[in-house]
């Protein structure tokens, strides 16, 4: 029981890393971004390209950290470029049209990855000292999962501080509440949008980069994670970072318990939970009618 709960929490934090950027971008731009999965995948391939483009043999920790940070920032650069070129124009479309626009972008990113790296699964080794496990309270836990949980907590606290304790956060929340009034008040809303989008894509890239030791890299990683991430941000409440965290951990634990006690539910539990929560609370667990929460 404790073992499955712990495993579920570890899994939930990886999902939270993906979902946090997604819900942040929704909060400010009101756009549910399919291509977020694409940035996640790119983060993974950038790390692969940096550390493993020879033979995957061993990976010193400092090199891995460097590659993860570099990979996440590189994804942010791609994010800024796509925001300027494409998203600026997508914002003014209706919610469904913009959803489809970002789906188009997801296809483009996935296709480009397939052209560059092919579809053969690739992987990045665990950085030295992190490919092990320790026993906590009679439960065997991977050290890397503990690192992921730690990074997830740092990201959550960092986002909270950024949004509620800085001038930038104040502007971002104001734009999320009412973009029009902000423009009248002289706020550079375009700059705020670009910054938030860059931050969101960096988080996606970070998630993908950190996920590399735990997944098989293929172009369809982009779609494999996005459906779960959507479920999380919607159940958590669109625009709510704390809601995304609760939902991510909830899904992770529920999936883990399902596999342990009733395996036929694995893979289906996501949809059942999402369905039930939305029927009871269509606005999601933590919600703010407009803006970030």
């Amino acid at each position: 029981m404790l073992g499955s709960v712990f495993a579920g929490i570890g899994d939930g934090f990886l999902l939270f890393l993906i979902a946090s950027g997604l819900t942040l971008i929704f909060g400010v731009m009101r756009i549910l971004n399919f291509s977020h999965g694409g940035y996640f995948m790119l983060g993974g391939y950038f790390v692969y390209q940096a550390v493993a483009s020879g033979s995957p043999i061993s990976l010193p920790l400092p090199l891995f950290v460097l590659a993860v940070v570099g990979g996440a920032l590189a994804v942010g650069v791609v994010g800024i470029a796509t925001e300027r070129l494409i998203f600026r124009k997508i914002y003014r479309l209706s919610d469904i049209a913009s959803l489809l626009g970002t789906f188009g972008l997801l296809l483009v990113i996935e296709g480009v990855a397939e052209i560059i790296w092919g579809v053969n699964p690739m992987s990045v080794p665990f950085p030295t000292a992190l490919g092990r496990s320790i026993v906590v309270g009679g439960v065997r836990v991977g050290t890397y999962s503990i690192v992921l949980i730690a990074v997830g907590i740092v990201v959550a606290v960092g986002l909270w501080a950024l949004l509620w304790r800085t001038a930038f956060g104040e502007r971002a929340r104001a734009v999320a509440e009412d973009r029009y009034v902000c423009e009248l008040a002289g706020v550079n809303t375009a700059l705020v949008s670009t910054s938030v989008f860059a931050l969101g894509t960096v988080l996606a890239g970070l998630g993908g980069a950190l996920a590399t030791p735990l997944i098989a890299l293929t172009p369809d990683v982009a779609t494999a994670f996005i459906i779960e991430a959507f479920a999380i941000v919607i159940v958590g409440g669109l625009g709510s970072i704390s809601g995304a965290m609760i939902a991510a951990i909830g899904f992770g634990v529920a999936d883990s318990l399902a596999i342990t006690y009733y395996p036929p539910l694995s893979g289906v539990i996501f949809f059942i939970l999402m369905f039930v929560v939305l029927l009871v609370r269509p606005q999601g667990l933590v919600s703010n009618a407009r803006g970030l929460a």
Binding site: I90, G104, L105, L106, G111
Partner: peptide, 16 residues
């Protein structure tokens, strides 16, 4: 491979 997705995505974005 790959190009099928790229072109489909560009068409979708272009239309929108």
């Amino acid at each position: 491979p790959g190009w099928d997705l790229v072109i489909l995505g560009l068409v979708l974005i272009g239309v929108l």
